[in-house]
Design a binder for these strands. Structure first.
Lengths: 143, 143
DNA sequence: GCCTATTCTTGACTGATTCCAGAAAACCGG
DNA sequence: CCGGTTTTCTGGAATCAGTCAAGAATAGGC
């Protein structure tokens, strides 16, 4: 995974037009997991120096809507994007530095997907965010 | 629960000064669960017409830090606050209208609190958000 | 009632995200 | 390979939640 033609296939498979900005955005998200929009813009501009931030925002929205990338946004953080999709994994977020790491679900079957009382809602996804402190910040505050 | 003197006790118990804005904010959060900051400001101003938005923001931060209210912020939503604390319940969010409802945890014991691989993080909270469509929006889109 | 630390007011400001109108590019059929 | 059509991109302005800062007001202890 990772070649330009792979990404072209992905876009076509999702019925999306193949454009340079979209390819660059897709590449950037695959290469920088959990990157915020600003980092993605910077990364994209290494390939295409003249893309507008609007094109990046738009591409990200389109790709998110198509399910090619996933948008995550823990409280107090800006939007971040990741490429691991469809495997129901979750995230640990550091309260101190905001770092994000992936975690597979503790329960092997779809975990808390069934709420005890769903209030009539039709639930299609359960998102789990673990809050804590990452190793780096932990040692930093202990010293 | 709900009288002014109750809230005074709460504030004193948390070593916080009892001020009119704080009492009004606390009351507003108790009366309007899952309200966003703007609604809270409006509600507060029914009692105290002259409070600044800054005072409300500050009170909310203070109360959150003291653990008297909880801040929740699903992706794509502004900050919201609720008064149910300390019982490890979760939320269903409507993708269409943004409505939020409470759900108790499906698993009776602390649920997904143990990640399969915590990457060295010290985890202190697991936040679960169920995404779906609420009954109202569901019927609205079917018709 | 007075003093001091904390909190509130006022008003400006930041920064992420969105809106808009025109220019450019991608896909389709020939 | 070439127009026509539709979608996307550019550039710039606008929005909106939330924050910052300095001085005025107030709670709580003595």
């Amino acid at each position: 995974m990772g070649t330009t033609s792979d990404f072209q296939q992905l876009l076509r498979g999702a019925d999306l037009r193949v454009t340079r900005p979209r390819l660059a955005v897709l590449t950037a998200v695959y290469e920088h997991s959990h990157a915020d929009t600003d980092s993605i813009i910077t990364a994209v501009r290494r390939d295409l120096p003249h893309v507008s931030h609007q094109a990046v925002y738009d591409s990200l929205h389109t790709l998110t809507a198509a399910g090619l990338v996933r948008r995550i946004q823990p409280s107090g953080s800006v939007a971040r994007y990741e490429s691991r999709i469809g495997d129901n994994h979750h995230h640990v977020v550091c309260r101190s530095c905001g770092r994000i790491a992936d975690v597979d679900c503790a329960v092997d079957h779809v975990p808390c997907l069934t709420a005890s009382d769903d209030h009539g809602f039709t639930i299609d996804e359960a998102e789990v965010i673990y809050w804590g402190v990452c190793p780096d910040c932990s040692t930093a505050s202990n010293s």
